[in-house]
Amino acid sequence: MKTKIIYIIFGLVFTLSSCELLNFDGPDAQFHGAIIDEETGDTIPQDIIDGSTIDYIEQGFEMPEIQRLIFKVDGTFRNNLMFSADYKMIPARGNFFTPDTLSIHINPGDNKHDFVVKPYARIKDVTPEIRALHGKNYLVVTFKIEQVATEPVKSTMLAVDKSPNVGRRINERFFERSINRVVDPDANQVLWLPLEYFTEGQEYYIRIGALMDVPEAKYNWNKAIKLDPYTLPMP
């Protein structure tokens, strides 16, 4: 009887204690912030799918893999499952001039960091309206492009969706127009879509983007505008 109890105790000790050391600690840090235009102080709107990224490498490994954060459309980011450690970070392949690599220490708990960069371009004075042409109504958006990069503007894009995440890859309707020249910041640019594409009484989010002819560049967008195209003024 006594030996049986001893066996049971041994058994319990082994089963209860043995798995402990094999477990690593889970993610213990949150990391969030935004990508900020160094001139205006505003966040730089982004694409969610195939948009700008923050590449980060956790230090202390021989062959580390590059990990990536993506942005929300408003230019903020958040990762609630980070490990506290030293990192090298770089916002890369985006709609802004790539800054230098940063060394960032992530502490356990909440960490906030804003990346201050120079965008390739800014979209200004976005004015949507209805115009008639050949007996057909169009949603017409005029806007201006303030170039920061000196390369030509490759294309402009009007994207429309019911979701505020509207962008190059998330849209119900889009019109992309080749430009391929440097543009005058005071010149009106224009993009349009037939009004019949939209349902009356439905609110849509529209965004205007300009893509600079820089390798791996992403679109520079305005902040999404919410509207029902049928209620727009008709000059």
């Binding site: 195939d50 490994f61 062959m63 580390p64 893999e65 590059i66 392949r93 890859r169 791996e216």
Partner: peptide, 26 residues
């Protein structure tokens, strides 16, 4: 359908053990 530019090359598997440099954006 959109073809992302990184798909022009495929990711190399197992780079942490074979010590190779990964292709862009993977």
């Amino acid at each position: 359908w959109t073809f992302p530019e990184r798909y022009y090359y495929k990711p190399i598997g197992g780079i942490t053990t074979n010590r190779l440099i990964q292709n862009p954006q993977y």
